[in-house]
Design a protein around this nucleic acid. Structure first.
Lengths: 328, 328
DNA sequence: TCCCGTTATGTAATCGATTACATTCACTAT
DNA sequence: ATAGTGAATGTAATCGATTACATAACGGGA
């Protein structure tokens, strides 16, 4: 038994002849070492859990890919679980961390209270990415949402838009920051910030379509001349609905998205949007996490990733298309 | 120690007073049981691994959701890993099964040789879903691809199309079956099967666009009057490219997709496609897998899931839109 | 008073792999 | 011939939780 273990762990103190004999027998009986026994003794599992709110999240899947690359490079396996934005499910999967089935955890959109996350972070390696929880004391990697939204809004205003609607999911911290950026731009240009132009969505296509209908049937108020959606999916819903209402997105009304998922290039009209470097975001977050795992003493802090605005046909009416003006 | 274990496992033979005292201390010191030790003793982990070729696969993410539901219902956790269609990665993750980190594995698009999969299936609980490997002796859950493609082709022919192109990924077993169905329909109607109209793709949008360009610049041959793409994503590429070439999909040329992902409802024109019940597919596959785990003796076989054709604007030129003719 | 049964808790073996330490063996130097 | 050396292998403790079994404590009946 001991010798077998030595063979499998490349211990040099095994005679060449014994080694090959062992390997042969292993092959014959189809022996596979039990990972449980192993990690019980030498505790790291070299496995990381990434929590996603849903499995088909276009934006986060890019982040996940970045995280995966960084993990593999350092010899870690990565596994995913899906929370469906339910606290209870999230706690279930967090158990994998506290029970040592994984060495660390990467949150992409936690629903847990800040305090709970802080407590977890104090005891175990954990990092937040993309969407963060206000007040949770975990390292965080993401873009400057306030600034990005500010830039989009300013761009729309400078292009001549005066009635700019915004669709957000107010539960998200990032969405609240974006709203702030939007308001900063409006204030700067002396344009009134009408609450009627703030509409809620949940990042689904349907909710975008629904928001669009509300915006274009406001009583006692002119319809918007631009719609800034908090995600490309909602923007897709907006565009779809505009066609159904006989509006021409990109000409009658400008549309701006957020995330730059693949869909943005395929929609008709193609969608202007904010590009976040998903790969880089995931990579940096994973690096931060591995740092914490391997040197428990370390106390790194938040990381900010750059973003850029992408101009496509959905804002054709006010400017150039498909240039990649790098901004931050 | 023993008493603590009893408390955590709800053993009735613990005095109420001791129980509450134990719980209090557990809370104080922040004790969390180590899952390794536990599963080492009572061996099932009640955890299932689902292998996906990529994290942002629109179609499979629906399947994954179905699998997840079925697993939760029976008290199993589910975790995902991504193979990027690389054999080596796939083998890495399969180790989680052989090393008993999970109780079973669900393949959605394995790249491994049939023999290897058969060997695995003989020793451990494993099931294939959606895409199968020809000759691999694992239970499989999927649709009747040959029949579905036959129905689509027949529909196009009956609508008046005579030059029907098909885009497939010939590496997939399912694609080869679909090609057969396509050929059966052509033969039945006495329409020649021209190899020039068979174009390769890899299920990416780009490959669809590329295929489209080839199809509409065939030397000495009329361009097709219908394009049947092996996936909605490729169909999206086809449609995008048609616009760029000044063609009107759904009027000049019919377009049919496969999978019925959400995108199909959003494209302009909306996309006619084959709907596979993703949820049901995932659910049935997971049920099959759990069956195998819990009653090792059982030897269930393949399961066939129904499909239906969805008619939308991209075949507007030849028929009704958005009806749901259930077929199998 | 003694014995028995019941209930609650403690003891120790177990799961499978790892690894410090002990042992064996062959061989060399004295 | 004997002690000493080093390489290869064997032995047994260990990781943390579970659980069959042993023990302790207590009350009640003969």
């Amino acid at each position: 038994m001991a010798t077998v273990s030595r063979v499998l762990n490349d211990d040099p103190a095994v005679a060449e002849e014994t080694r090959s004999r062992v390997l042969q027998v292993i092959d014959q009986v189809g022996y596979a070492p039990n990972a449980l026994g192993r990690s019980l003794r030498k505790n790291p599992t070299r496995r990381i859990l990434v929590l996603l709110p849903s499995i088909s999240h276009q934006f986060l899947s890019g982040v996940a890919r970045g995280a995966e690359q960084a993990a593999w490079r350092r010899g870690y396996q990565i596994i995913f679980s899906v929370t469906h934005s339910k606290e209870e499910l999230e706690r279930q999967y967090i158990k994998m961390l506290t029970q040592r089935s994984v060495d660390g955890i990467l949150f992409t959109a936690s629903q847990l209270p800040a305090q709970e996350l802080s407590g977890l972070g104090a005891r175990y390696p954990a990092v937040m990415c993309s969407e963060c929880v206000e007040g949770a004391k975990l390292p965080y990697v993401g873009i400057d949402n306030e600034q990005a939204a500010y830039e989009v809004t300013r761009y729309l205003i400078e292009g001549g838009c005066r009635r700019i609607a915004i669709i957000t999911r107010p539960e998200d911290y990032s969405s609240r920051l974006r709203l702030k950026g939007y308001q900063r731009a409006l204030a700067e240009k002396g344009i009134p910030d009408l609450p009627e132009y703030h509409v809620k969505g949940d990042h689904s296509i349907t909710s975008g379509a629904y928001a669009c209908r509300r915006l274009f049937s406001l009583p006692n108020l002119q319809p918007p001349d631009a719609v800034f959606a908090g995600s490309d999916l909602m923007a897709a819903g907006v565009i779809r609905r505009m066609y159904e209402m006989g509006l021409r997105p990109g000409e009658d009304v400008m549309v701006f998205g957020f995330d730059n998922i693949e869909l943005a290039r395929i929609l008709t009209p193609t969608l202007s949007t904010v590009s976040q470097s998903k790969l880089q975001m995931g990579r940096r977050a994973m690096e931060l996490l591995l740092e914490r795992i391997e040197t428990p003493a370390c106390t790194q802090r938040d990381v900010r990733i750059g973003h850029k605005l992408i101009f496509r046909e959905s804002t054709r009416g006010i400017g150039v298309q498909e240039s990649g003006r790098e901004i931050t």
